[in-house]
Every structure is written in structure tokens, then in C-alpha cells.
């Protein structure tokens, strides 16, 4: 009996570790050089899955993600249709099969905004309530 209680408690704890992150509303931001003001949801997915070509012949797309947290989880769930772990696994497969370069990662939103502001062709996402300076906010269709 004690053993089954311990196993149940262990399973519950393990499941709870992966739950409990609040949903966040995200907005897309981009470097001012990016030649679009509106992005379709399908295009966001293509960009973050490495399935799209450059903005133009001179300007590569440079996607960036935040490393962890509810903003990342919400973005991946809403636009990429993958969990954070599935997204990481997808890019590890690409890296170790030589078929793609993963999005850059930043630890905080302020670093992510700074990266987008400083990197021509960059595109990223932040929480709706976060102020974004030096970048342009993209509308999503």
C-alpha cells in the first residue's frame, strides 16, 4: 500500500513539473530592415521550421527564440504547433543531419529585443505587454 502511494505521488510530481505555465499573448517583432509589415501564421511556422528562403537575395531570415518560459511555450503551441521539447528535438535532428541551422536563442526578452534590433533580417516574438524599442512590430494575419 505504502509502495503504491509512493509511486502515485512520484508520478503526480513528475507530471506537475511539466505543467503550470500560464498562457501568454505574443507579438512578432522584426529588425527594421525586414521588408514586410504583415506575416501570415503559415509563414511564421515555415520560418521557425527552417522551411523558407531569405527575405530577398541579400537578406537572410534570422529567427530567434526565447530559451524557456510561458512566452516561448505559447508561441510554439499557437504558431508552430509543437511543444517546447518537440521543437528542440526537431532542431537537434536538423543540426545533426546537417539539414538546417536552428533559430538563435536568448535567455531574456530584453536580450531577444536587443538581438532583433541589432541583426538585419531578424524576427522574434515577445510578450504582448513588453515594450519593444529599436524594432518594428509585425501584424499577424
Amino acid at each position: 500500500m505504502k509502495r503504491s502511494i509512493c509511486i502515485s505521488a512520484l508520478i503526480s510530481t513528475l507530471v506537475l513539473i511539466g505543467l503550470g505555465t500560464a498562457a501568454a499573448e505574443v507579438v512578432m517583432i522584426a529588425h527594421p530592415s525586414v521588408p514586410v509589415d504583415i506575416v501570415e501564421a503559415g509563414m511564421i511556422r515555415q520560418i521557425y521550421m527552417g522551411q523558407t528562403t531569405p527575405w530577398n537575395d541579400e537578406l537572410a531570415i534570422a529567427p530567434v527564440v526565447i530559451k524557456a518560459g510561458p512566452v516561448r511555450n505559447e508561441f510554439l503551441k499557437t504558431y508552430i504547433k509543437k511543444s517546447s521539447a518537440q521543437f528542440s528535438t526537431f532542431w537537434k535532428k536538423a543540426v545533426f543531419s546537417g539539414t538546417g541551422t536552428p533559430p538563435a536563442e536568448q535567455n531574456t526578452e530584453s536580450k531577444l529585443i536587443a538581438y532583433v534590433a541589432a541583426t538585419p533580417g531578424a524576427i522574434g516574438f515577445i510578450d504582448h505587454d513588453t515594450a519593444a524599442e529599436g524594432v518594428k512590430v509585425l501584424s499577424i494575419e
Binding site: 508520478i11 513528475l14 507530471v15 506537475l16 513539473i17 511539466g18 511543444s83 521539447a85 518537440q86
Partner: peptide
């Protein structure tokens, strides 16, 4: 099944 960041 990905139970958590730690366990699959």
C-alpha cells in the same frame, strides 16, 4: 510521452 522537462 513527455511527462516533464526531466522525464520522457
Amino acid at each position: 510521452y513527455r511527462a516533464s522537462d526531466l522525464l520522457e
